[in-house]
Design a protein around this nucleic acid. Sequence first.
DNA 1: CGGTTCATTTGTGGTCGTCCGCACC
DNA 2: AGGTGCGGACGACCACAAATGAACC
Length: 373
Amino acid sequence: MTELKEDQEDQNRQPQRRLCDFCSENTALLYCRADCAKLCFSCDREVHSTNQLFTKHTRWLLCDSCDSSPASILCCTDSCVFCHNCDWESHNLSLSPAHERRPLEGFAGCPSVSELLSILGFEDLGKKALLYGDSVTSDGGGYGFSDWLVWDTPSVVSLDDLIAPNDSGHNFQAIGLPPLPKNRNAACGKHKEEILSQLRELSKLEPNSSDDQDDIVPFQFMEPAQNRHLGFKGSGFMQNSEHAVVPSAEGSAFNWCSDTGEFTDQGFSSSLADCFIETKCLLPDRDSDVGDASGGANEEQSHNPPIAETFQMVPKIAHRELNSQERVTAVSRYKEKKKTRRYEKHIRYVSRKVRAESRTRIKGRFAKMDMHQ
DNA sequence: CGGTTCATTTGTGGTCGTCCGCACC
DNA sequence: AGGTGCGGACGACCACAAATGAACC
């Protein structure tokens, strides 16, 4: 909590560094490489919902250290997100090479508040709790925001993920980086309070905002003993479930170190969780279902399986032995997804790009300059 | 310690060739 | 089941300005 307070003070001390490039009012929390812009959640939605092209822009959280680059590393020890540069400086040069870190990924599209919560690792919180955050205090029995801000993220690794291109500005590769967990986004660094605050505001603007999938039951409750003995603090589905399961699908050398000795192949668990996310996205968006805001949560649940139920399915699958058919299906989905995975190219030096585009070529290759010209 | 010089490394894009998965016969 | 063709994905290639690092004054 003290750290949290310090973080907030830090934010207050440097308000200008994180000003939204679009509205110049709110604190910027996201970075869009395609636009080279720092954005608050509100402007991010405004900007990236205008047309289908913009929705393809991938956005990252803003680096907690330099406040100017997309964060690609989460330091669980510091509860901070870093860009490659700052991660390098923080964890290589000095102090804390042993810090527990893991990669982060951005998100694209135009996610709803609920989806953003999920992306940022707040799926436990839910939109409803977000909206009525005041009623659930951190002191006493309820779950205040601050309670959700403290978690441990598992160390994970997949060989594929380690091969992921470094699209940040330099060539530094994260050092001693553990494999990617299924949910690579489940973290939001030092600015959690600001993130939650902006999401809360955003949530109020969404139609049907009070009637959401936020009957999401904290995952740790559904997954009692297993994850708890792993030392998780109820950080949400992704953090927990990722550890849980999954048979080895592609011989990944990196496994979830489940003390239970269950199958814990990371690659496969990734696929499961990814498929799971896709399933979630395919569900009717109740946020957009403006016309049906009357039914109570329970009633609605009975008609339309809430996302929370979908989330619950995974641990159920996870804890039983997958039969061969399921395994084959999951593996093929994983391969398919891996096949189509794309990363936006990041231009570090625009001047070089301009020059390269204007250079003479022979069959696509750069040709020598004509000395006589 | 700061500035300068020099050597080395990096980054850039269009095309080609190779590999792989898939469909079809 | 095996062979063939097609299409998508992806790495290699090229020259050179810019960036970076080391050495020196």
